[in-house]
Design a protein around this nucleic acid. Structure first.
Lengths: 293, 293
DNA sequence: GGCTGTCATACCCGGCCGGTATCACCGACG
DNA sequence: CGTCGGTGATACCGGCCGGGTATGACAGCC
């Protein structure tokens, strides 16, 4: 009797995230009373108090925090199992871009998550080299717009990913190092600093009238909040902001952009990463191909 | 609709492991027909054929193999969630040895999995040093007799483990390196080779009349199959076998044993390892203590 | 051809999952 | 101070589904 149904986990996680039975029930598409009862049953079966119900909302106990973390991981594992099984059986429902035919014999497929517009060159070479391998699977390239590649691997939307330290964490995955590159400042071609052969992070941190762009409202600073890379490119060309990128970003620079190496920025290392427990031949072949590029 | 209940996963994994509905049902403590139906429903919901039922048993399809692997991982994650939640809430049911009082304030507990009789010295120093830390949790030492430490971490029986490469795989865990040591051959003190100051793996591989001990019947070879380290020590003292161990094994040698360094054996590295998604202060403190020893 | 052993089907029952209605409680507020 | 709004808990009920038993379809085998 040391197991939980995923339904119970979904319910508890919803309540723990909302800290409110009513909203959680709404999110789950059900009424509040059965939800209350289900969580109570879960608490009884675990023999542990998960929530501290003082009037005016709900608070997590220490055990509740633990179950929130571990339960999320378990739910991810369950949905990953479903997604990967469907994919292996050919009953997939993704409308993803970039399907590349394999050798036709096996109907294997591999979903590769990449950060949009990063490491073009590497990705291109990798896909070409892999497609040339005998026995290669079809590779779907899944650009992770808003989401972390790590999340994609965890919940099964992807089988393998290109990740970039120090931006992504490789924790919990197996990985191989592929390339290392420096970082560059991307600024308007007309700006005085664009003539320099080298800059420092401090230089670009506070250029008068040219604040650093931010990817989210959470980051403090005066710079504009941007949502995609095209928007950013536009704003740079308009002399409104400056940004820092790995060197491979030179691939998408405009004529009105200038790139200057940053002397003291940490190098960006591109890894190919996959769930540690993977046992797929197609994946192994892709990794081997990548490391031999 | 991209999720599974753990019940369905348990059922399918049982069938996939037994490749026989009747035996699987027995193992699950239920009748065969509901099990058949449940697996059929699972196949319908996934839209994928998992089993190839030709008369005379059952075979896994490619998708079935995938679900077996991924489903096991998901089930491990679910039971880990339950175990760790119970532990965090103080409603634990383990009868494990080695409970060591923390500083009393927090009722936190940490289960540390170790290979029985490995790295005594290191373990001792670690426990002492950790207990001296302010805010340390109670540490339960869980000797993993038959089981891999990695499995203990995966299914929540342990929170952290001492693991030894190249014997254990660190895949999927975060880890820090602690110590490196060479390996020694443990042989009867009276044996001629015991006088040597150094040996090679080839030397001990085929000593006439002294075959290498095996831990499992799966390993081929003429040596005796042993089940625990005491049994092995006995057999060595009786001139029946020889074995290879990390240097720290000197701690438990008998008077009738001799230890000779192995010149070409790969070094054994002891790591402290934990699930990559862990977010526990007590664990972080233990890791920091360990790396500072 | 019966026998054995496999998995699937048919049918029934009880439990539990979820919904509606309501309660108990507290804080805010005029 | 009574009322009201909003919280989660309780009571009750109906339908679904998970599980059991009995049986069927089908292949291999002596």
């Amino acid at each position: 009797m040391d197991t939980v149904e995923t339904r119970e986990l979904r319910y508890f996680v919803a309540v723990a995230e909302e800290l409110h039975f009513g909203r959680a029930a709404e999110r789950l598409g059900m009424a509040q009373p059965p939800l209350s009862r289900a969580v109570q049953q879960l608490e009884r079966r675990l023999g542990v108090r998960l929530l501290e119900r003082d009037r005016r909302g709900v608070a997590l106990t220490r055990a509740g925090e633990m179950l929130l973390h571990e339960g999320r991981a378990a739910l991810d594992a369950a949905t990953a199992a479903v997604r990967r099984t469907r994919r292996a059986g050919g009953a997939d429902g993704t409308g993803s871009t970039g399907g590349t035919g394999g050798t036709g014999g096996t109907r294997n497929r591999l979903v590769l998550a990449v950060k949009a517009a990063a490491a073009h060159e590497l990705l291109h070479k990798l896909l070409d080299a892999y497609a040339a391998e005998p026995g290669a699977a079809a590779v779907e390239v899944l650009p992770s717009g808003t989401c972390e590649q790590g999340d994609m691997l965890r919940d099964g939307r992807a089988d393998v990913a290109l990740m970039h330290t120090p931006f992504n964490s490789l924790a919990g995955f197996d990985s191989e190092e592929l390339t290392t590159e420096g970082q560059i400042a991307v600024l308007p071609a007309a700006h005085p600093l664009a003539a320099r052969t080298s800059l420092t992070l401090a230089d670009v941190a506070d250029i008068p009238g040219l604040p650093l762009a931010r990817w989210s409202h959470d980051t403090p600073g005066p710079g504009p909040v941007i949502h995609d890379q095209t928007e950013l490119a536009q704003l740079i060309a308009l002399d409104r902001t400056v940004a820092v990128f790995p060197e491979s970003a030179r691939a998408w620079l405009w004529a009105k952009h200038a790139a200057v190496p940053l002397a003291d920025a940490p190098p960006v290392v591109t890894h190919i990463a996959w769930p540690a427990h993977s046992r797929s031949l197609a994946l192994a072949l892709l990794v081997r191909t990548a490391t031999r590029l």
